[in-house]
Write a protein that binds this DNA or RNA. Sequence first.
DNA 1: GGTCGCCTGGTA
DNA 2: TACCAGGCGACC
Length: 270
Amino acid sequence: MPELPEVERAVRLLRAAVAGRGIARVRLIHPSLTRRVPPRVVRSLAGVVVDAVERRGKHQLLRLDDGRVLHVHFRMAGDWSVDRVSAPLPRHARATIDLTDGTRVVLEDPRALATVDVHPAGAPLDLGLGPEPHDAALTAPYLEQVLGRRRSAIKPALLDQRVVAGIGNIYAAEALWRARIAPTRPANALGRDELRRLIAAMRKVIDRASGARYRDGADRFDVYDREGLPCRRCRTPIARMVQAGRSTYHCPRCQPTGRRVSPSPRAARP
DNA sequence: GGTCGCCTGGTA
DNA sequence: TACCAGGCGACC
């Protein structure tokens, strides 16, 4: 589930179910979660009220009325489902939040990579996140500054949440395609104009992913998972490569790698 | 900077 | 059976 638009959707579902309500019991089911939080801390969540539910990048924060923060990250495959405390548990239920009104929120996570943490009251919570795609703070000069010292490829750099919060493997590839920037370009080699295009592309890709029509469409990606299929701009087969251990999809023709590997006479704007 | 491990499931 | 998976922290 987890890139920014998907987490935002999940947060809304969660908020509708838990905001302003009392927790009757939290259960951590999978060993990867019980290892993280001491049993007495889990037990101590009974009786507190959830004041608010917030999202920071891909992180979900439940502000509790005793000042603590219940912090959830879906990682690769987590998602919420909402049912009643009396219902049988879904197959991949890894944690549950039972509410005093009989509602149950279930963390479903087939890969069991999601994390749950409880932060003490009063401790400042630094998630180390950069601006989100729609933050006004995300500007070309900002990117120029944070990417300036990075000789690494732009695509893995975009996955660093300290640079931009909320961009993941899919939308990084999608945005680079849209901005016509090769994923292998050194991050510090991008010019102002390219950075501006990249920001606009990230915003567009995130916006599009938030719409239901796009979400359910069969062709919701331009490059991701489209290896060998024709580029939607130039019909060149989409290529797949591996960067930092992750798949990267791109169009070898309209995302030119080198300085001037046969650029088209006039580079068209995206 | 790249690689590995965490976990489990789906698919070629 | 092998490989892949929308993330990320630990490690060289």
